[in-house]
Write a protein that binds this DNA or RNA. Sequence first.
DNA 1: ACACAGTGTGGGAGCGCTCCCATTGGCGTC
DNA 2: GACGCCAATGGGAGCGCTCCCACACTGTGT
Lengths: 341, 341
Amino acid sequence: MNGQGRSGGRPTLEEVAVRAGVGRGTVSRVINGSSKVSEHTRAAVEAAVAELGYVPNRAARALAANRTDAIALVIPEPEARFFAEPYFSDVVRGVGATLAETDVQLVLTLAGSDRERRRLAQYLSGHRVDGVLLVSVHAGDPLPELLAELGIPAVISGRRSADEALPCVDSDNLAGAAEAVHHLLGRGRRAIATITGPLDVYGAQCRLDGYRQALAAAGQPVAEELIAVADFTEEGGRRAMRELLERRPGIDAVFAASDVMAAGARRELRAAGRRIPDDVALVGFDDSVVARHMDPPLTSVRQPIEEMGRTMARVLLERIAGESPEHSIVLPTELVVRESS
Amino acid sequence: MNGQGRSGGRPTLEEVAVRAGVGRGTVSRVINGSSKVSEHTRAAVEAAVAELGYVPNRAARALAANRTDAIALVIPEPEARFFAEPYFSDVVRGVGATLAETDVQLVLTLAGSDRERRRLAQYLSGHRVDGVLLVSVHAGDPLPELLAELGIPAVISGRRSADEALPCVDSDNLAGAAEAVHHLLGRGRRAIATITGPLDVYGAQCRLDGYRQALAAAGQPVAEELIAVADFTEEGGRRAMRELLERRPGIDAVFAASDVMAAGARRELRAAGRRIPDDVALVGFDDSVVARHMDPPLTSVRQPIEEMGRTMARVLLERIAGESPEHSIVLPTELVVRESS
DNA sequence: ACACAGTGTGGGAGCGCTCCCATTGGCGTC
DNA sequence: GACGCCAATGGGAGCGCTCCCACACTGTGT
């Protein structure tokens, strides 16, 4: 269409300045949308930018301004796997959506093995990103402390406890679980069991609390024998279901704290000759693919994962900009009712 | 543990040089593992690096060396969705695994909407990455040409035709499909239908060819009425199945070119009162979560997605380094047999 | 008439690295 | 013993940007 700068390489700020008949500083001001530039000059610069097809050199900018315009999304690999399958892509989509409006790069960092985590720590020490998004942090994880120490802005999703030092964005695990149980009560179920995740995971704890609260709110006693602890895996869900059936054969509903565990429970129920939902109603959590394709399709609590991604990115950008927004954000869940209940 | 550089900020090359009692150039050579440095000097520099906790400033390096040490993974969002759910995370894991051994960053770029694709083109024009990984490129996509024009190294997965200009890494769609059909033949099935993806997608075409070849190899005629074209969606699979049953009620096996379409087909078969696998055997493609959790669990063709990611990254790095490795790599698939066949 | 803000604006001084040329010193050679 | 050669090293010159100080100019008040 037009010459992209005669002398070979990409055009530089300097060249734009010459072309527009102004100084470097002025072009820089225009590029950065900054303050005081006369309307006339601004127009001239913008024209020159357009003609030359000027794109700022990110490295030079980073070097001079001592920032990178990049944030890292840390994925603790092993977890990401069972944490509901589309979770990962949904988070990325959400984060991406927010970043699309800025000029910030998303750098993906996998930290599965211990070796990789060490690399990551090293990496972050190099201050190669302006901020960090942490997904599904685990109990003994040193990363949050490291980040705090290095003074790198960070936002967590899947907090480790009620009082997390870093800002958090989470879904309302408690309310979601409560809604699920409330729904089962509404269907006339009375012997409602629950299969929980590992209770040292805060989210799992919240879901159990939600279960308790919903029963309490309905004036129902909470029988401890109706609570089975599992580990978010299918096999764990199955085992838990077996225990529950042994302890209380009369169960007529199960709230599983994840779809995958619900899938395990379903297999066990089948094996025991229980029909779903006729004999036992089943509700899961996550609303993952598994839920949609289960037989019968599984009623499940949907988390607004993409929105969580968007929100996390937004909060992080605000933090980086030096604003101190809300410390903890809880997003509402939604019960998706299907044939299993 | 030790002082991280007394004067506040991160230590610089210069400071390491002073500390080691050598010149900047020498330190640079050591850092970059480059050529001629005496054993003695190298040791001194390495000691200084360790003591100071020196980490090279990426921006400065990028600016001076005119490279970025970053590659982009372009995700055409809308596609990524139905292209088997874990696809995305598996590719990322593979790519990450390869990059973990280098010092190259993975920058994630979503390009769902047309607007985003334009942004992306703009972005790439800025030469902000050393290379690009393209996943699931579509027929009319201008990206590959743009990249070629800009002279940016790139690698594609999911090529658009047999002779793609850019280097490709794909799974062996044809052989995978053939194996699936062969398997059905081995189970004694004779009226084997297939549900294909959109035939302007090269991979879908290959799978259909595999179906044809397997039948031909077994001396079976290929009846066109046993071929139904769909679109990789569940609903499409369902419709295709309905057509097939109308055209040829005696079908005793179906090879669907994706698990999601197989799920659609299963629903239709159920509705028609056909039992799986007793009346009709069903085989899918992708070996996604859907397959594992279907009822009955679905036999499916597994693609080595993570390995594809690893390979793509490897090939791209080689390209960037100026080597010209294999142009097109085809990775073997694997049939995972479950109860549906 | 003068001083004094207040806008816009130009351009020097780096940011921390790589590239590459110049320099050093040790050693083999005729 | 002078010469050449090469491995090893030092350090200047940028890379393209942002930051910020200094310098016009224009007005306004006295």
